[in-house]
Computed example of a mutant assay.
Amino acid sequence: MIRSMTGFASGKGEFGAHSWSWELRSVNGKGLDLRLRVPDWLNGLETALRANLSKALSRGNVTLTLRVVRKDEAGALTLNRQALAAALDALAETETLALNRGISLAPSRASDLLALRGMMDAGSEDEDSSPLVERLKAEFGPLVRAFLDMREAEGEALANVLHAQLDLVEALAGQAAELAENRKIQMAETLKANLARVLDNTDGADPDRVAQELALIAVKADITEEIDRLTAHVAAARKLLQQGGPVGRKLDFLMQEFNREANTLCSKSQNADLTTVGLELKAVIDQMREQVQNVE
């Protein structure tokens, strides 16, 4: 089963004096980009969570946000003295610069400073966070499983869409093959007429050489190889979808090959109906490429 790179999961829990909530979400990406927002005072937790996600995922831009609070928030909040000192220094410098320009600022209040981000820490620096960290590690497994379940469900929907598009590509390739077979008589007659016209208007031309050149033109207009390669690409794509796992990069490469064959078919068509089929092929292949961008 293939998986989509789009997914979301959330969860809540509590342990002892703490409660938490976290969100895990992802969108498509060329590689695996993990962005974790985990409280710093939970020693070792971010490293463990990152390792877990790296093992479970292959591609995607993944964001994990964990918020932890104490049930008794009044007793849990501690002043970040370093952050306060930096804020006071910045405030003093601001007031000095304002006075030098003749600007009078309103008096600052303690509540304004305490409201700044990072000024108050949730959790005591002296508190042993290891039991909470172990509990969060255990709770992370079900969250990841729910996240993967959603990516797999999205992947199943993607696979259904891709299978339908591959069926359409195969059908269009079959139409192209029939049109190419039907145009052979027309092309032969056209080549004969061109050959006669050239021989009638070219004094001293080597008939064999002219015939060879016209035959070369006919070979260049043959789309048999393009049809065969399109059919082979369809089979390869179906095999990858059946295989499952992180096959997004391989599918993306196949889409480039699909597009190359469709472009060549259009350039060789020399027939309005065949060109129409070629353009329909290109449209379907572009739609497939958009879907493949979400496959892990």
Rank of each mutant, 00 (worst) to 15 (best):
R3T: 01
M5I: 06
T6N: 06
E14I: 02
G16I: 04
G29A: 15
K30Q: 10
L36C: 10
L42T: 07
L53Q: 13
N61E: 14
L64V: 05
R67Q: 13
V68W: 06
V68L: 11
K71H: 15
K71T: 03
D72K: 07
A74T: 15
A90V: 09
L91F: 05
L99P: 01
L99D: 15
L99Q: 15
R101S: 08
A106E: 14
R109V: 03
A110V: 14
D112V: 01
L114M: 10
L116R: 13
D128W: 07
V133W: 08
R151T: 00
E152C: 03
A159D: 02
N160P: 01
N160I: 09
L162C: 04
L168Q: 15
L168E: 15
A176K: 05
L179C: 04
A188L: 05
N194P: 00
A196R: 10
D206K: 11
A221I: 01
E226M: 01
L230T: 06
R238S: 01
L240P: 05
L241A: 00
V247Y: 07
D252K: 09
Q256S: 01
E257Q: 12
L265Y: 03
S269K: 12
Q270P: 09
Q270K: 12
L281R: 12
Q287T: 09
E290P: 03
E296C: 06
E296A: 05
